Amino acid sequence: MLKAENIIAVGLMGLSIYFMIHATVLPIGWVEFEGPGGGAFPFWLSAVMLLAAAGILFKSIREGIPEDAEPFFDPDTRRAVASVAIALLVTIGLIPLVGAYVAIPLFLVWYLRFFGGHGWTLTAILTVATPVFVFFFFEVTLRILLPKGFTEPLFFPLYAIFF
């Protein structure tokens, strides 16, 4: 288990550094009258990921291998990771067709209700609240338009209100 933790932590650190380097192609600071530069969020999110991975590596090295170490992935965990990975790939594939505001709620319904076994109330609240938050955060606040697929005409009235 220790070896797998260390390998994943080092891999995430390398990936974080790669993302940070490529994010600096765009401005990472505040752009006058526009807000954060195009590279700001990728850079700072990668920096947080780098710190988190470094913390995992440091803790893993400091504590050593526990006496009751179990395999890193048992068969049930492998199945769960594979099913979520497949669902994410399907979601990503749906985004150009149906748009982010349909694909994300579909994923959330599957993940929360069917995979996670949560109740319909929580599933409904998060399935409705997440796309609303994403719309206001990205499209209204940051003015970053997300793909809408064939649902784009439904957003024209909202564009008229907010832009």
Rank of each mutant, 00 (worst) to 15 (best):
K59H: 14
F19Y: 12
F163I: 07
Y18K: 10
D76I: 03
H118L: 08
F155I: 00
V128K: 12
L88H: 10
L112Y: 08
I21E: 04
V10T: 14
G37I: 05
L88F: 15
A85S: 15
A80P: 01
F156W: 11
I28D: 03
I61D: 02
V98W: 09
F72V: 01
I95G: 02
T127Y: 02
R62K: 15
F163V: 10
P71Q: 01
A53V: 07
I144T: 14
R79H: 04
G99F: 05
G99T: 09
V132D: 00
R113K: 15
A52W: 08
P157V: 10
F135N: 07
M20W: 10
L57K: 06
G149F: 03
G35P: 12
V132N: 06
G64A: 03
L106R: 06
I144D: 09
S60K: 05
F155C: 06
L2S: 14
V31A: 05
Y111L: 15
G38L: 12
T24Y: 00
G14S: 08
F33R: 12
A80T: 01
P96L: 07
L89R: 07
L142H: 05
I95W: 09
L158W: 07
G55A: 05
A52G: 14
I17D: 02
I86S: 00
I28P: 11
A40W: 11
I92L: 12
P66S: 05
L106I: 15
G29D: 12
S60F: 09
P131I: 06
M20P: 06
L50N: 04
G38V: 12
T130L: 13
G119H: 00
A4M: 12
I8N: 02
P96G: 10
F72C: 00
A85L: 15
P105S: 04
G117H: 04
S83L: 09
I56M: 09
A129E: 14
T24Q: 14
L146R: 04
I144W: 14
E70P: 03
F136K: 03
N6W: 06
E70V: 12
G38E: 07
F33Q: 14
Y18G: 08
A160H: 11
V10Y: 00
P157E: 10
I17S: 06
